[in-house]
Design a protein around this nucleic acid. Sequence first.
DNA 1: ATGGCTGCAAAGTGTTTGCAGCGAT
DNA 2: ATCGCTGCAAACACTTTGCAGCCAT
Lengths: 163, 163
Amino acid sequence: MMKNHKETPGFAWFWEALDLYLERHKLKQTQQRKIIVDFFLRINSHVDAEELHRRIRAEGHDIGLATIYRTLNLLMDAGIVEERSFQDGRSVFEVASPDGHHDHLVCTECGLVIEFENEGIEEMQRAVAKQYSINLKTHRLDLFGTCMDEKSCLERREKKIRG
Amino acid sequence: MMKNHKETPGFAWFWEALDLYLERHKLKQTQQRKIIVDFFLRINSHVDAEELHRRIRAEGHDIGLATIYRTLNLLMDAGIVEERSFQDGRSVFEVASPDGHHDHLVCTECGLVIEFENEGIEEMQRAVAKQYSINLKTHRLDLFGTCMDEKSCLERREKKIRG
DNA sequence: ATGGCTGCAAAGTGTTTGCAGCGAT
DNA sequence: ATCGCTGCAAACACTTTGCAGCCAT
């Protein structure tokens, strides 16, 4: 059973939601899915499909990139993963927060992503939409800048280059 | 000379900026560029490269899609056009507003794009960035919803389907 | 006549899909 | 024994690039 995973503490709800989704849709629990989800949760930050694939292969698992994409899409269908596109072309994926929407601060130097919520901004967005006669459904707010802490920023950048 | 265009009133500054850029970079003023810019300015809303190409061909001009892309990239290098990506995959282009940044309201039904500025939101963004120790450089805010005026929304949708 | 520009086709991205065989139920 | 799942390669959609000839300067 997928329920007997040993990794990714704190994400029991995620595994349970996945189990439920698979069961309801008569889908199967495979080794590949288990591994992909495990790695995804352990990284637990905004990863793209190829990065995830690379890390999984790096530990000796022979899983195809297509399967990574298929699994991420399945997790999105299950509503427990969300897709974002910060820099053009590449999508990154994150665990969906069950308690609502958040926006992102992205460091353009080191790639650090910080999630934040700000009710004040959201309220002003609703006002703007109303002003222009639009029924606001969703929004996307990304703030781009650079880390004030240059030391840790540089470290992250180097770590990324080294792979 | 490109200066002697008869179309796109109100965009003299755009043509002048383009002339200046071409001159400074020892680039040439060609028929194709003239036509592409003319169509782009006349559409004067958020178009993607293929849509622009389609409209230009529809009026009998034999210009390649690659040239459309190359010209749009040139206009971006010149700083008078900006690229946006609302719905994934496709980039849309708009005339850069010389007087600063603006954000977008997008109708997910008819594709209508409304530009707006809101200093209050921008100020709160700066506060958020500071709070998380990020030097804010730029941001991207897109509000997605549907038109309250369903009639004109439907009209735009139908017009789009008819081509 | 020089050297940038064009159209075409080919190559490049990131992502999806068809298929034959594999594996979970 | 089903029937979903996987890896692979091919297909996709959007964009860029190499090339031989064209055209603005």
